[in-house]
Design a protein around this nucleic acid. Structure first.
Lengths: 325, 325
DNA sequence: ATAAAATATGAAAAGCTTTTCAGGTCAAGA
DNA sequence: TCTTGACCTGAAAAGCTTTTCATATTTTAT
């Protein structure tokens, strides 16, 4: 395949001139420009991006780190990032980690080895202390509150959102309340648990271990929740959780087994995914699309101006009342 | 940042030896290897991947072209690709095109410019005639039947799957049948329409334009279908479509408005997404995850052995009877 | 003891581009 | 006429690594 040198030879100019034409620099005489363009055409030339990246020291790519691609929560973030990056001509490298630290490490190494210009962590297993040092190689942003560090954050106050849900349930007269979340040890879910505990404490209720469901990511797990609920003698009257998909499954499966929603069991989901609207599920709206969009924008600024300090941005949430409470 | 030259100097060897150590070539004396490793440590060296890519002429990355990332159909394919690629240490570049030919062209150019080693098209706007010439730069695979070309394919017979659904409905006594699909002009949906027409013709029914819904991608559009259905004097008794999400929305929204499912309206979706199981929706299982997985595997073989000819692989589908017919 | 094979190493080329720097030309203004 | 600034161009350096080739040293086999 032809390279810039052959173009230069055929067009009778130097490689510098060829480069100027290719990159539309000013100060190239019209006849030379035409000759270069003709040679490009004739030899069917195309740039070797790897050489460009090498010399420029950047690739216009960012890594998006997430445990699972095919999941509405992460899909929403990714969608936001993808749309924002499209406008800036940045490409996304999808790094599905399955929550394995080893895969996360590989992504950090990609930043160090200049394969990507920045990283957005949608969720992670490694600690921020382990991740933070890599910010010297390029900006890193978290889709959760990473605190006051060199890593930037865009986040939603999940403590607050869960607290809102709890208070709403309590206001409706519920005292026997359960929850369902994804990975129990993620930062976000730690906060949700905390909010749950605090809300219960405020009304003088003891938390009841059986009503606390973890690793509830999807429909199937939602069904499982109902199965376990059915086997209980002492059931909660309300359940609050992360994700509208498991919430939808819980509502559907519960009704299938004669548990009336909301009379016997009130359900609140999170996200305000279209499924919640369709099925009339009360939910806490968390705009993950906006989280992704903002994450890219903040990252983008910092890739262009390395001197910019890390920043934090908090996005809002709201309760959407429908018919499952 | 340190480069291989500085390592060589500090370790007192040539850059060739450093490269050998870094790439675990044999034939390096133990003491020199240790010296190099020590220098690497001391200078906090890391490879510049862009230089590696340049000299190797490959990047271990593939482009995944899809119109929307946050969509269960494409999410499933992407998931399959991501998992298969993880095992081979390939990275995915996500190219969200929004069905714009201009964005698809950019991806083809990335292949040409050696930024990616191969491409998988989940769906596309450009014609295969436009895409095919780019196979000289690297393997390209389609997640639909691209026919006999230099582009490989992994696909499901969507004509057959739709025909199966139609025949099932007809066998249940339906004659007034509608359909809902996504983009009407995609190859896949052309075939679905064809199957629909053929099935109707077989029972001597005329297709009825009002019952043919296009651009039905998600929940919202599913709700819209019901709205339009409600406004009709002459309604279909059954509807068959692509996607379980719109199907779920149709079922839920129809029931909300007093249309009994399946008595007044039978519904069949496609994909066998968990939502279909949860809501008991009859559907045609299409394993998009497997499509993605196979796509990557076929691509992988061809990236390693450029002489391999393009190939085609057909995957199966099956009807899953639940309670909406 | 000697030939042959295995091991070890560095110089240099190859992979390809952008950018700086120095040196031009030419026209307009003083 | 001379100066200044705008316009134009090419050589060479910088960005960094892998790999080939030639050569040198050891080890093994005969």
């Amino acid at each position: 395949m032809a390279n810039i040198k052959e173009i230069a030879k055929l067009a009778g100019v130097s490689i510098a001139t060829v480069s100027r034409v290719l990159n539309q620099h000013p100060y190239v005489r019209e006849d030379k420009r035409a000759a270069v363009l003709e040679a490009v055409e004739k030899l069917n030339y195309s740039q070797n991006m790897n050489a460009v990246h090498l010399v420029k020291g950047k690739t216009s790519m960012i890594a998006v780190v997430l445990p699972y691609v095919n999941h509405p929560y992460f899909g929403g973030i990714t969608d936001g990032i993808a749309n924002a990056s499209l406008a800036c001509n940045y490409k996304l490298i999808l790094c599905q980690t399955d929550y394995r630290a080893e895969e996360e490490q590989k992504v950090l190494d990609m930043l160090r080895m200049k394969q990507v210009d920045g990283i957005v962590f949608c969720s992670k297993t490694m600690t921020w202390d382990e991740i933070e040092p890599y910010t010297v190689y390029g900006p890193i942003i978290a889709c959760e509150n990473a605190g006051d560090r060199a890593v930037s954050s865009v986040f939603i106050d999940h403590y607050g959102s869960f607290k809102l849900g709890m208070d709403y349930l309590i206001a409706k007269g519920h005292r026997k309340i359960g929850y369902f979340i994804g990975r129990g040890d993620s930062y976000i879910n730690m906060n949700r648990k905390l909010a749950y505990m605090d809300a219960l404490q405020a009304i003088g209720e003891e938390p009841y271990a059986e009503w606390q469901f973890e690793r509830i990511f999807d429909f199937e797990r939602g069904i499982e929740v109902v199965r376990r609920l059915l086997a209980m003698k002492n059931r909660p009257t309300a359940i609050l959780g992360s994700g509208d998909h498991p919430a939808a499954a819980i509502v559907a499966e519960a009704r299938k087994h004669g548990i009336r929603v909301p009379e016997d069991l009130a359900v609140i989901g999170s996200d305000n995914h279209p499924i919640a609207e369709v099925l009339g599920i009360t939910t806490i709206e968390l705009s993950m699309y906006d989280v992704g969009k903002n994450a890219f924008e903040i990252l983008f600024e910092r890739m262009n101006d390395k001197s910019l300090p890390s920043t934090r941005k908090e996005l809002t949430y709201r309760l959407i009342e429908r018919s499952t409470v």
